[in-house]
């Protein structure tokens, strides 16, 4: 992790372009039929249990098996490969880009993700803290919870099969928790963000600075939490 952060450079980047660009690729080979066009607004998955699918982006059909791919982030279609409409594409082909307007909280999280060590989900599953870690969090909170490589920190639960997950990464304290117990996480998504104890003041500085400067940076639409 960097000892110092060039706040002005980072904030200028977000000031110039307060958006995240989500590139959407073909998840499998097949024939593509788009459901959106450039400039279309799309909504992400919603509902109390994340049960309402996002806006349909495209269908991909392989051997008469059609899959509908929906948006998982809200925003506007900023580019789309209309030349691939009705064409057979390989898995991994870039199909479109969603421009997502960032909120203050997301900017902070994005910056923190650059400076924290992120511990990823090994499989698509539900996660919860191990009993020992959970009781320590309840007593003292995550910020006072030091972990080191080899510690059993999280239980991965998939179809009533519980697998202890051992931490492998930099020793430090749990700064950010990105999962909610009982909510499925995709493989590779960050579960927790760790930082060395002595770097906590730097992290706090990031948060304070963004909170202070954000409203000056962007238009009111993006200024909400």
């Amino acid at each position: 992790m960097a000892e110092e952060i060039d706040f002005d450079a980072i904030l200028s980047k977000y000031r110039a372009d307060p958006y995240e660009y989500a590139e959407i690729y073909a998840s499998q080979t097949g024939v593509v039929n788009f459901k959106v066009e450039e400039g279309s607004s799309v909504n992400c998955t919603s509902g109390e249990w994340q049960q309402i699918p996002g806006s349909p982006l495209f269908e991909i059909t392989r051997e008469r098996n059609t899959k509908l791919i929906a948006a998982r982030i809200n925003g506007t279609i900023s580019s789309i490969r209309t030349d691939l409409e009705g064409q057979f594409v390989e898995a991994g082909e870039k199909l479109l880009t969603i421009r997502h307007p960032l909120k203050k909280k997301e900017v902070i999280e994005n910056i923190l993700k650059e400076v924290l060590y992120l511990f990823p989900a090994p499989e698509r599953a539900k996660y919860f803290f191990s009993l020992d870690i959970q009781s320590r969090i309840e007593k003292r909170g995550t910020k006072a919870l030091a972990i080191k490589p080899g510690d059993e920190i999280i239980i991965m639960s998939l179809m009533k099969r519980d697998t202890p997950i051992y931490y492998s990464g930099e020793a430090g304290v749990i700064h950010s928790v990105y999962f909610t117990p009982g909510v499925s996480m995709d493989q590779g998504q960050a579960l927790i963000g760790i930082c060395a104890s002595d770097k906590l003041p730097l992290i706090q500085k990031v948060i304070t600075r963004v909170k202070a400067d954000w409203d000056k940076l962007v238009d009111p639409v993006h200024a909400e939490e």
Binding site: G47, W49, Q51, I52, P53, R124, A125, K126, S157, L158, M159, K160, G182, S184
Partner: peptide, 18 residues
Amino acid sequence: GALVMRLGDGTEIVEYGG
């Protein structure tokens, strides 16, 4: 083996654990 359920609002939800 994941469970497919229909919620009160008619939407479908798939759970891999619980």
